[in-house]
């Protein structure tokens, strides 16, 4: 099972990010979240979601989903556009990977808290 995100449905509210942070810290905080809304390009209204998993980063952009294997260097795309997720206070690669909210009675909290059902739990590993 893994988390899937439909970035076109996402409204960027960050509820998923805070719920994940609560799972990590038993308090409200964002630094340990493994799901992050990237929102630095607010002047362009370009936002989506990044999830740190055990061996990959799932980047849900409006134009589609990309899964990057951690540690694998890729050649830049033809468009030359900057494609990586925005830097956050704590780099994604330093965060704990998603454990689907193991031990939480709610199940994956990001799925439960998303107001527009942009996040879902799907079959399949990484």
């Amino acid at each position: 099972m893994r988390i899937d995100v439909d970035a076109l449905k996402c409204i960027g509210c960050m509820a998923c990010e805070m719920a994940c942070g609560y799972h990590r810290d038993d308090a409200f905080a964002l630094l340990a979240s493994c799901i992050v809304v990237y929102r630095a390009r607010d002047k362009k209204d370009y936002f989506g979601v990044v999830i740190k998993e055990e061996e990959s980063l799932t980047i849900a952009r409006p134009e589609g989903l990309e899964i990057k294997r951690i540690g694998v260097t890729e050649e830049s795309s033809d468009s030359g556009q900057k494609k990586e997720a925005d830097a956050s206070a704590k780099p994604m690669l330093l965060r704990e990977p998603c454990d689907l909210c193991s031990g939480m009675k709610y199940g994956p909290m990001c799925v439960k808290i998303c107001p527009v059902d942009a996040i879902s739990l799907i079959e399949g590993g990484e």
């Binding site: 409204i11 960027g12 509210c13 805070m18 209204d45 409006p62 134009e63 556009q81 107001p115």
Partner: peptide, 28 residues
Amino acid sequence: RHSACYNTPYPTNTFIYLNENPKTLTEP
């Protein structure tokens, strides 16, 4: 697109494109 303020289930904000095609999905 529509977007929400922090943890607000209703997206109260509407982004309009004036210099780009509003249907654009990629980063302008």
